[in-house]
Amino acid sequence: MIVMIADQQILSAKQVCQSCLMADNSGLPRWYSGQLGCGKALAKSTPRQATVYECQMGFNVTLID
């Protein structure tokens, strides 16, 4: 599941990304081969940590299982 992290809240990507011009046709972030296509990684992650990305709109985004 793709989630947005904002000020101690976890939001559904569908709530935030539907109005973004960078979102795909289903209103979700563009996720390719385990990486966010519409943002950049904030820091290197370890195998036990999820990588956190910053999207073009300024939200922190991560993929969690």
Rank of each mutant, 00 (worst) to 15 (best):
G34C: 02
P47I: 07
Y32K: 05
G39K: 01
I10H: 06
G58D: 09
E54N: 03
M4K: 15
Q18P: 06
G37Y: 14
G27Y: 06
D24M: 04
G37I: 15
A43L: 03
Y53R: 00
G34K: 03
V52A: 00
C20I: 08
F59P: 02
V16L: 11
L42C: 11
L28Y: 15
A6Q: 13
M1H: 14
M4I: 15
D24Y: 08
S19K: 12
T62V: 03
M4A: 14
Y53E: 01
I64E: 08
L21Y: 11
W31E: 08
M22Q: 13
C55D: 06
K44F: 01
S19F: 07
S26E: 13
I2N: 10
C55G: 00
Q18K: 15
D65C: 10
L63G: 08
V52P: 02
V16S: 05
Q8F: 11
R48G: 06
M22I: 03
Q9N: 09
L42R: 15
V3E: 14
V61A: 02
M4H: 14
I10S: 13
L28F: 14
I2W: 15
E54V: 02
C17M: 04
M57Q: 13
M22T: 11
K44S: 00
G34N: 05
I2K: 12
M1F: 15
F59M: 05
A6D: 08
V52D: 03
C20T: 04
Q15A: 06
Q9W: 12
M22L: 04
V52C: 00
S12V: 03
C17W: 09
N60G: 01
K40M: 09
G39C: 00
V61G: 00
P29V: 07
L28R: 13
S26G: 08
K40D: 11
C55Y: 02
Q8K: 08
K44T: 05
Y32L: 07
Q35M: 09
W31Q: 04
V52H: 02
Y53C: 00
M4Q: 12
M1T: 13
R30H: 10
M22K: 14
I2F: 10
G37Q: 15
T46G: 08
C20V: 11
R48Y: 14
Q35D: 05
Q15S: 12
F59L: 07
A41Y: 10
V52N: 01
D65S: 11
Y32R: 13
G58P: 01
G39Y: 02
A13E: 04
Q15N: 08
Y32F: 10
I64M: 12
M57I: 03
Y53D: 02
S33C: 01
D7C: 06
L42N: 14
